[in-house]
Design a protein around this nucleic acid. Structure first.
Lengths: 136, 136
DNA sequence: ATAATCCCTCTAGTGACTAGAGGTTCAAGG
DNA sequence: CCTTGAACCTCTAGTCACTAGAGGGATTAT
């Protein structure tokens, strides 16, 4: 049996965050001590690792709820899990594309060598969208 | 003089968002109609374009506040503006790197051809961080 | 027994909006 | 001049995934 603090250390998830996951219905507490403190089994630890890892990979709480539900039974089909992962992958790829366009624009702007605001490319570009070379 | 609705259309910024920018101190209203409705000059329109464009480039409200302050006087040195842009560029690049690692991991996971949860790579990988090939 | 550390619940704050309630003002047509 | 409908007003609360703090109780080691 682990206390919430031990779970926190072992999984690298802050204590209030564990309680937050509980509130969100991702991690139920099976047991409490006599003094009402949370006690977790190895199962809880695994579940929290799953959550933590999924969050690291950028899945939303809602996605994780579904993934946890799907993973409950070994004989479940895993197509839904694949769909969730694929959708997330597409979202990530889209964000990368957008950020790369941003990066180009910011790089270009940052080349400015001016000394004053009057002819500074940063300020000027921000004031005038027409100066941008790519969409964003 | 533009009403808030006109400003909204011209800049592509939703009306509640314009009011929000006002609350955040980015865009003061110079004038009100007799019936207390906001009226903007061409100056306000330019300012809102600047804000909109900066947001599109991912600058935070705080950054924008500073950039707007810096841009008020043409003779101001623009080193601070460069610093803000450079810092933002680094942040963007870091996010890109992180997202690319994520992308790799998600791609790898998504290759799974299993039919059930029992041997699905998505579920399995989420449950066990050790299976990941890169840091994230 | 006591001190130090851990844990409890509850509320509120973050950033950048978005949505809705409930009411007022404006502009155009008759 | 009057009415209608669209546009506007303020204020509150919700979003997401946490994070921080207050004010108190439980556990553990000495």
């Amino acid at each position: 049996m682990y206390s919430i603090g031990e779970l926190s250390k072992r999984c690298g998830v802050k204590i209030p965050t564990i309680r937050y996951y509980e509130q969100m219905g991702l991690l139920e507490v099976e047991e409490r001590s006599e003094g009402n403190q949370r006690r977790y089994s190895a199962d809880g630890l695994n579940r929290l690792s799953f959550i933590r890892h999924s969050r690291d990979l950028g899945f939303s709480i809602g996605d994780i709820r579904q993934l946890l539900e799907l993973s409950r039974h070994r004989e479940n089909p895993c197509k839904d899990a694949h769909d969730i992962a694929a959708r997330h992958l597409r979202a990530v790829q889209q964000r990368i594309r957008k950020l790369k366009r941003l990066e180009q624009e910011l790089k270009r702007i940052s080349l400015c060598e001016a000394g004053t605001v009057a002819d500074c490319a940063v300020i000027e570009t921000l004031a005038d969208h027409a100066q941008c070379e790519t969409e964003h």
